[in-house]
Design a protein around this nucleic acid. Sequence first.
DNA 1: CCGTATCCATTCCGATACTG
DNA 2: CAGTATCGGAATGGATACGG
Lengths: 147, 147
Amino acid sequence: MKRKSLEGNACPVARSLDVIGDCWSLLIVRSAITGTRRFTQFQTELGIAKNILTIRLKALVAHNILVPAAASDGSAYKEYVLTRKGKDLFPVLVALRQWGEVHLFEGSAPGLRLVEKKTGHLVPLTRIRSSEGRALRPEDTQLMKIK
Amino acid sequence: MKRKSLEGNACPVARSLDVIGDCWSLLIVRSAITGTRRFTQFQTELGIAKNILTIRLKALVAHNILVPAAASDGSAYKEYVLTRKGKDLFPVLVALRQWGEVHLFEGSAPGLRLVEKKTGHLVPLTRIRSSEGRALRPEDTQLMKIK
DNA sequence: CCGTATCCATTCCGATACTG
DNA sequence: CAGTATCGGAATGGATACGG
């Protein structure tokens, strides 16, 4: 039977996962955020098969996360650049990165760290914080019905 | 051919996606964060098939994101409670929720909003901010090699 | 260099029926 | 209530060959 679409789901989390909930989409966005723009660049960086990459890129373009553009160096090929919607996925990637660094590296440290350009902080990672500056935790929030 | 495992990948984002990069895992964690603990509760809330739920719960337990515990009400059944590792996925869910609310609801507003318990802020959503209090954006950061 | 087209294996997911 | 067992369909992903 057909896989259930979460597109019309009331939960924003479900809808998001419906769009970028597969293995490759977020990794492609991550590469794009760090400057990758060309097909082969994505392909070699991620080690993804070309046909899969084609499909994923098309889906991301269809969802308006990437936009095809003329090559900046004058060559005849396309480039893929992030839209605002695509850039807005950045916090998701930061959150995933943090979680992975804290919980998925037993002993072996990751080779890259994300630092704030402005401050250049040497802290392991820019931390996601609530408006008070404390780390955001489940206990800080509650789910309220609005009307 | 076998799906490529990202388990040993150097990128924390890739490793995270390898663990919780499927459709259901994060939705189960989201339910768990809002208080769901029982098998059938998960099943009816999410509309997931029981066999799939079984598989996903087992995987989450294997990854130490959930832990089986004796039922709190004295009944003979198990409950699934979040570990610290599981709770730490909260920022990921908040980020996904925010992105979904901003970009995936054309006209139709979501029925729930997340507010800070302490302040009870009526703002649309607790926003993810960098340490300066501004919304975190790609331009605020850079990737640095450490050694 | 940038894809597209096939082919194939694996995995995922849903429905249903069944057990204690 | 909490699963397990089985089935089939669909989607995913990889390898490779091919064309602009």
